[in-house]
């Protein structure tokens, strides 16, 4: 019975209870992002109430801010922003990093040297400062934030991809298909990359977490657009009222914590599923 490496990994993932918990939470976030705002639209939470700075209660749920806006509503709207920014940034970083890393690892020599030095330049830049500078110069905007994060995150992916490509390209099956007359580009993209991509996928989920954190940080410093709801903005907002209205800071903080943790844990589970320890060996 044929069981591919992919489906074996899937089986392993399904057996891991942590994967269910973290994956379930992520799924919940996606659902909230999709239908949450429309669900809240007609409830009392959407209206600006007259309860300014009121704490969590049965009517105000997670409390209100200084303009009477519900914290819960802002959190729900913020899910969209976080997920959007996180996933888009991680996807672009992964795509770009994979391409660069694969080419560097496969070509070797001068190309590898140049590409990796460029990656290093981006890697050593202080993440937040670069983000702040770009956004300050170019003005705030969600997609700008995505670009900034992608620019800062791609080197990690490139490095991992390059390492894997270096390992795989010396395996015998690559030599075998070369002897069959396969072109070099086909060898790289259809033989090597699929066998090298596993750690990159695991890394991708971690990058989502990093992106969400960075977005929140930028928001905290007021560098994202004020008209797009974001958890970072809430944190920014909450600074001033941290003594009287702790809920403005704490709930978004918890949301960020839970989300990033979920993505990180899920990434760990994917990594473990793709890379099992061979415990069963009959001599």
């Amino acid at each position: 019975m044929a069981i591919s490496a992919g489906s074996r990994a899937w089986q392993r993932l399904k057996r891991n209870p942590l994967a269910w918990v973290s994956g379930g939470f992520i799924l919940l976030l996606v659902v909230i992002a999709a239908i949450g705002p429309s669900l809240l639209q007609d409830t009392t939470q959407s209206q600006i109430s007259n309860d300014l700075l009121s704490g969590p209660s049965r009517t105000t749920l997670l409390g209100t801010d200084e303009l009477g806006r519900s914290i819960l509503t802002q959190l729900v709207y913020g899910v969209r922003t976080s997920l959007l920014v996180g996933v888009l940034a991680a996807a672009s970083a992964t795509l770009f990093g994979t391409a660069i890393g694969a080419i560097a690892g496969f070509s070797g020599g001068a190309i590898d040297l140049v590409l990796m030095r460029i990656a290093e330049v981006f890697q050593v830049m202080p993440t937040f400062i670069l983000g702040a500078v770009i956004v300050a110069l170019a003005g705030p905007g969600v997609f700008r934030v995505v670009v900034v994060i992608a620019l800062l995150a791609w080197p990690q992916t490139a490095r991992v991809m390059r390492g894997e490509v270096l390992r795989v390209k010396s395996l015998e099956f690559v030599a075998a298909v070369r002897c069959l007359g396969m072109r070099e580009s086909a060898i790289l993209w259809s033989e090597i990359v699929p066998n090298a991509i596993a750690p990159v996928i695991a890394l991708g989920t971690l990058v989502i977490g990093q992106a969400i954190l960075l977005e929140a940080a930028l928001g905290f410093f007021g560098l994202t657009t004020p008209d797009v709801a974001s958890w970072g903005l809430l944190l920014n907002d909450g600074q001033r009222f941290i003594r009287q209205a702790w809920w403005i800071s704490v709930f978004p903080g918890l949301a960020i914590l839970a989300t990033v943790l979920a993505f990180n844990l899920f990434g760990d589970c994917i990594g473990a599923a793709l890379n099992p320890r061979a415990k069963e060996r009959a001599a």
Binding site: S4, A5, F173, A175, A176, G181
Partner: peptide, 18 residues
């Protein structure tokens, strides 16, 4: 080069596992 083909040691890496 196709007129000449290799057979390697059975190392588990002789074939694309996917």
């Amino acid at each position: 080069r196709t007129a000449m083909q290799p057979v390697f040691q059975d190392s588990g890496a002789a074939f694309n596992p996917r």
